[in-house]
Write a protein that binds this DNA or RNA. Structure first.
Length: 488
RNA sequence: GGCCCGUUGGUGAAGCGGUUUAACACACCAGCCUUUCACGCUGGCACACAGGGGUUCGAAUCCCCUACGGGUCACCA
């Protein structure tokens, strides 16, 4: 029985220390970002420390760039760590690969105390044991046959001697009481044959040494908890409090996995597509957590507000399906709240990053920003909505082609009317007058008047305000597009 | 298959024994605004508490069973 309510109370009184401990493989995943965020929120809420630790003990899988990518994206999101890579701290090093002596030390302690032992079984042996168990229809557990056959001087993998008949109960901070039986587990491996520690050992040693008070992680780790609890016990350490977060699911209801390509699931993708970090944070926070009663009808929160309202008790237990539509809506909401100038700066940054080499005046960009601020849900939408401005070549949509073809004479007339105007005063208020002139000259009005022009100039039957669009396009360009009516 | 966790409308979710004829938001639909689209505004839809037993004067809320879904069972983390 590993339950101890007094120690829980004690832990809650200690100054909070939480950690996010990713294994750096691939790109930073939304699920990881969400876990990191919740740790961060919890730490900030309680005036504690948020620690970042890189678990890179699996040399084979470890990737240097992955670590860089993680750090970069955390910085972008604003999830800055109080201790960890680059910033250091009193409990370093913060890379598992640099803590090998520590793991070795505690491994030896377990070995010396007879709580762990070398196992010499070959993989084939274990495999056939497993098969045999399955054939007999019983649950496979390692038999423990090496327990009492230790050969001095001979090493191998190290197994932890799982105590018999123990009830492993802990009070998960989000799911309540969860219990396992030690008898359901065979002696599990805590160190590889090459001396590298296995996750469960490294994790426990690190968390204990780093004085972590709350382990907030994904639900996929729930079943590791009993194993870790046994390790804490064996090492004479007080376990931290655990909180297992619900999984983020894809539309298929399965855990969002890196292999599933149906959803954009890397933070970096949202960053490069021009999403605001405020929106990503806000959305992620609401995936599995909801604000308290007094704010239950709101959902746009700044990070500061979220920190304020955050509480482990309000984390839901069921998995949450990731909904891009909602994130888009949220991003659009944040975009609308920006001032024209802020929006302009971000647009310029985005376009520069997309390596569009447009050289327009600041004033042009400002007008451009006003034109699109309320209609895009992310800067990525500009690719479509502003295509007529961003590319010299205009590609006409099918319906626009038809309309242009049917109205060639009218468009030529419109072009000639515009040609009589001066280039100097080409701005939307003047363009309104020009359009009136065209109306007079062609005796057309309403849709008859505007739609063909829109089609020829913008290539689409719908889009942003026509006059402003024409202004941004420039007089020459508009004339040219009105005239080019044959071969498209 | 063993163990563990979960189950409120298409999605996120509120609800933590009575004030619920179950919020709010996204999506969707309609109307208004608009010389288009979008934004915005207004309204609407969804006929949501997985099913079955209990406990209770009273259950979405507590207990049990079943079903379904998910997670996990590596010398990965």
């Amino acid at each position: 029985m590993l339950r101890d309510d007094d120690s829980e109370v004690k832990l809650k009184k200690m100054s909070v220390r939480v950690r996010f401990a990713p294994s750096p493989t691939g790109l930073l995943h939304l699920g990881s970002a969400r876990t990191a965020l919740f740790n961060y929120l919890f730490a900030k809420k309680h005036g504690g420390s948020y620690i970042l630790r890189i678990e890179d003990t699996d040399v084979a899988r470890n990737q240097m760039e992955a670590t860089q990518n993680f750090l970069e994206n955390f910085r972008w999101l604003g999830l800055l760590w109080d201790e960890g890579p680059k910033v250091g701290g009193a409990y370093g090093p913060y890379y598992s690969s640099q803590r090998l002596v520590l793991y070795q030390q505690y491994l030896q302690q377990l070995l010396d105390a007879g709580q762990a032992y070398y196992c010499y079984c070959s993989k084939q042996e274990l495999e056939s044991e497993r098969k045999a168990a399955i054939e007999r229809g019983v649950h496979y557990r390692y038999s423990g046959k090496c327990r009492n056959h230790q050969q001095p001087g001979k090493t191998g993998v190290v197994r932890f001697k799982v105590p018999q008949g123990q009830e492993l109960i802990f009070k998960d901070q989000v799911r309540g009481e969860v219990s396992f039986k030690s008898d359901d587990f065979g002696d599990f491996i805590i160190s590889k044959a090459d001396g590298m520690p296995v996750y469960n050992l490294a994790n426990v040693v690190d968390d204990a040494l780093m004085k972590i008070t709350h382990v907030i992680r994904g639900e996929e780790h729930l079943s590791n908890t009993p194993l870790q609890l046994m390790l804490y016990e064996a090492l004479g350490w007080q376990p931290p409090l655990f909180a297992h977060l619900p999984l983020i699911l894809s539309k298929t209801g399965k855990k969002l996995s890196k292999r599933d390509e149906s959803t954009m699931q890397f933070v970096e993708q949202y960053r490069t597509k021009g999403y605001l970090k405020e929106a990503v944070i806000n959305y992620l926070a609401l995936l599995g957590w909801s604000p308290p009663e007094a704010h239950k009808e709101e959902e746009l929160f700044s990070i500061g507000q979220i920190i304020n309202l955050f509480d482990l008790e309000r984390i839901s237990k069921a998995g949450a399906v990731f909904d891009l539509e909602k994130l888009k809506w949220m991003n659009a909401s944040y975009l609308k709240k920006l001032s024209d100038n802020e929006f302009k700066l971000l647009v310029q940054e985005y376009l520069a990053q997309q390596s569009s080499n447009l050289s327009y005046s600041e004033d042009w960009y400002l007008k451009f920003s006003r034109l699109f601020k309320d209609s895009v849900s992310s800067f990525d939408d500009l690719q479509e909505q502003a295509a007529f401005l961003l590319h010299r070549e205009l590609r006409l949509a099918e319906e626009a082609q038809i309309l242009v073809r049917e109205n060639q004479d009218f468009l030529a007339l419109a072009a000639s009317v515009i040609q009589k105007t001066s280039n100097a005063s080409w701005e939307s208020s003047v363009i309104g007058g020009v359009l009136k002139d065209i109306s007079l000259a062609s005796s057309r009005k309403g849709k008859q008047l505007f739609l063909p022009i829109r089609a020829a100039v913008m290539g689409e039957l719908h889009g942003p305000d026509l006059k402003l669009s024409m202004e941004l396009l420039g007089r020459e360009c508009v004339i040219k597009r009105l005239q080019v009516t044959e071969n498209f």
